[in-house]
Amino acid sequence: MPSSKDHILQLLRRNRPAAAELPMVAHAWTTFADPHAKFAEVLELVGGRAIRAKSVDDLNQHLSQLPQYAVAKKVVSLVPSVGTNNVDLSTIDSPHGTAVVDVAILPGEFAVAENAAVWVTDRQVPFRVLYFLCQHLILVVPADQIVDHMHAAYERLMQTGGQPQGSKDGRQRNDFSEPVFGAFISGPSKTADIEQTLVIGAHGPRSLVVCFLDPTS
């Protein structure tokens, strides 16, 4: 008896329809005169808030005014000089240990204007669950790292050479060449499963603030 893999592939080959061309994904997609403004507008619609900071000091100033930050007992910050970290992640050996975190200040790589999504990965974060398990999430994104739409976002992720990995075997590198977790996060966790009533803070963060930090800082 052939393996299930061979069996399935055999059936697929037998039932293979006529060839159909793979289209180029190219079009004059909608862009925005002020992508940050579009991002902020959409983020507000999906229950989050965007902040623009000129410097790290300016950003810390903004943070101190956030009520969720002000009352937080356990804060994790993995963005250098931003916020006051009081959880020593090196003493935690299981992601479960991060369940106590009230506020997590984490890096976002870039933002997408059309849908207020921020691309995050687990490259600089020891426990990826931090993005989802903390009570409140603050993402810090370099202000010049913003694209208009999802097409540009994926092109960016798939472009070769621009990302941190080095080439070990001569293969073309992209964001997904090595084991990695990455996610687009757009707004705080939410549900509308009870009679379509929107509830912010389903299982994950109850709030999301995205801070655009000017690159000159």
Partner: peptide
């Protein structure tokens, strides 16, 4: 929605 809250890869 313009995108799901979490689109995880």
């Amino acid at each position: 929605q313009p995108i799901t809250t979490y689109t995880s890869h």
